[in-house]
Design a binder for these strands. Structure first.
Lengths: 226, 226
DNA sequence: TGACACAGGATTGGATCCAAAATCTAGGCC
DNA sequence: GGCCTAGATTTTGGATCCAATCCTGTGTCA
C-alpha cells in the first residue's frame, strides 16, 4: 500500500467527506447502480485510506438516501420503485419552485448570462450523458442564489436519488422529448431574466410535472438493471 | 469503565444507529440546544461505548441537518435564523399535504380512532411540553400510512430541525393560539375521516401557513438561547 | 439426486492506539 | 496593563487489531 499515499496526495487527503463525495460521484455517474453492493475494503483501498472514513461516508450517504444498510450485511445502492420515483418527482414539483422563488431575486446579470450559456450548450449538444449534466447544471443553477441550506440539500438529494432513473429514461427514449425540454427551459429562463417569480415558478412546476408524467409512460426504466 | 458493560446491557448494545437515536432524542427534548457543542468522549462514556459509533452517529445526524461539523472542531447543534425557519415551514406547507394525500386513502378506521384519541388528549391537556409531543404525534400520525421513505424521512427531518423553535414559540406565547390549532386540527381530522383528500390537503396547508406567519410575529424565539 | 449441516473464508462492527489540529493557559514583551 | 507568542492540554481524525456475523462451498446422509 505504498502507492496509497500517492493516491492520497492526488485526492488531497481522504477525509470522510471526501470519500462521501467520491462515492456520491460514482453513484451519479452510474458506475454504482441500484442493487450494487459497496465493500468498505474496496473503497478504502481505492482511495488509499483505511476503512474508517469509508464507514463514516457510508453513514452520511445512508442519511442522504443514496445507500441503504443492513447490519453485518453492508451497504447497497437502493432500488426505487416507479411509485417512489413518481413521489420524488411530486416532491420536486413542490420544492423546486420554492427554491427558485428564493433564489430568483438574488440572481445577478452574470448568473443570467451563465444560465443562457448552459441552455445554449444543451441545445447544441447531442450527447445524452452530457445532457444529463447540463440539465442538472441549468436547474440547480437557477437555485444557486438561494442560500437556505436545508432547502438546497433537499433539492440536491432528490436529484441525486433519481439520477439513475433519469439516465435510464433519457437513454431509452427521452431523446424525442428534447425539444419540449428546451422550449420549457426557454420559458423558465425568460421568466428568470425578467425576474417574474410567478411565471418562473409556474413554468418550472409544469416542466417537472410533465417530465414526471412522461417517466410514468416508460415502465421499462424501472426494470431490473441487468 | 467496568460499569460500561452494564449500561450497554441496559440499552441493548450501542450500535451507531442507537447512538444516533439517543442524540436525536436529546436534541428533540431540548437537552441539546442550538449552539451546544457535542463531545464524542462524553456521549461515548454516557452510553458505555467507544467513540467510534458516536462518530458514525454524528455523521448521520449531520446529513440530517441536526448537527453541523467543522474539521477538528467537532459537532454542534446548528442555530437557525428566522428566515431559515420560515423557509422550512414553507417546505412543510408544500411537502406535508403531499404526504397526507399519499397516506389518507390507506388509513384504516383504527387509525382514525387513534387520531381522534390523540386530538382529544391535546384538547384535554394543559402541559406545553406534552402538547409538543402530541401535536407531532397527530400530524405524523396522519402521514403514517404513507410508506414512501424519502418523503417520510424528509418530513421528519423538517420537524426535527425546527423542534427547538417550536418549543420556544409555544413556551413564549403560543398558548393563546391553542384553540385555533385545535379548531384547525378538527377540520383536518374530519376531512381525513371523510377521506376527502382535497379538503384535508387545503386545511393542512393553511394550518401550517398560519403557524408560520404566527412564528414570524415572535422574533424573540430566534434570539440567543441563554 | 437433493437437501441439510458444518466449516472456512470473507466482511462488517467495535475498541484501542497514535497523530494532527485546535483551544487554553501562562509567561514574556512592549 | 494589555497583547502577543509558545507550550501544554484537550479533542478530533485516522489506522490497526480483534470479535461477531454472514455467505459459500463442500460433504454427508436420507
Amino acid at each position: 500500500m505504498t502507492e496509497a499515499k500517492q493516491t492520497d496526495a492526488d485526492t488531497g487527503g481522504a477525509t470522510s467527506a471526501r470519500v462521501a463525495t467520491y462515492l456520491r460521484d460514482l453513484i451519479l455517474r452510474d458506475e454504482l447502480k441500484p442493487g450494487d453492493r459497496i465493500r468498505q475494503e474496496d473503497i478504502a483501498a481505492r482511495l488509499g485510506a483505511s476503512r474508517l472514513p469509508v464507514r463514516e461516508a457510508l453513514r452520511m450517504l445512508e442519511a442522504e438516501g443514496l445507500t441503504e444498510h443492513a447490519r453485518h450485511k453492508g451497504a447497497r445502492v437502493p432500488r426505487l420503485s416507479m411509485h417512489e420515483v413518481d413521489v420524488i418527482y411530486r416532491m420536486r414539483e413542490r420544492l423546486e419552485p420554492l427554491a427558485l422563488a428564493e433564489s430568483l431575486p438574488l440572481l445577478t446579470d452574470d448568473d443570467h448570462a451563465r444560465l443562457e450559456d448552459v441552455q445554449r450548450r444543451i441545445e447544441d449538444n447531442g450527447d445524452l450523458d452530457r445532457f444529463l449534466e447540463l440539465d442538472r447544471e441549468f436547474h440547480l443553477g437557477t437555485y444557486s442564489a438561494c442560500h437556505i441550506d436545508p432547502l438546497n440539500a433537499m433539492v440536491a438529494r432528490l436529484w441525486n436519488s433519481t439520477q439513475h432513473y433519469r439516465r435510464a429514461y433519457v437513454a431509452m427514449g427521452g431523446r424525442s422529448r428534447m425539444w419540449v425540454v428546451n422550449a420549457e427551459h426557454r420559458l423558465i429562463l425568460d421568466a428568470v431574466v425578467r425576474r417574474d417569480s410567478t411565471d418562473a415558478e409556474r413554468f418550472l412546476e409544469g416542466h417537472i410535472r410533465r417530465t414526471r408524467i412522461e417517466l410514468g409512460h416508460h415502465p421499462a426504466v424501472f426494470g431490473e438493471p441487468s
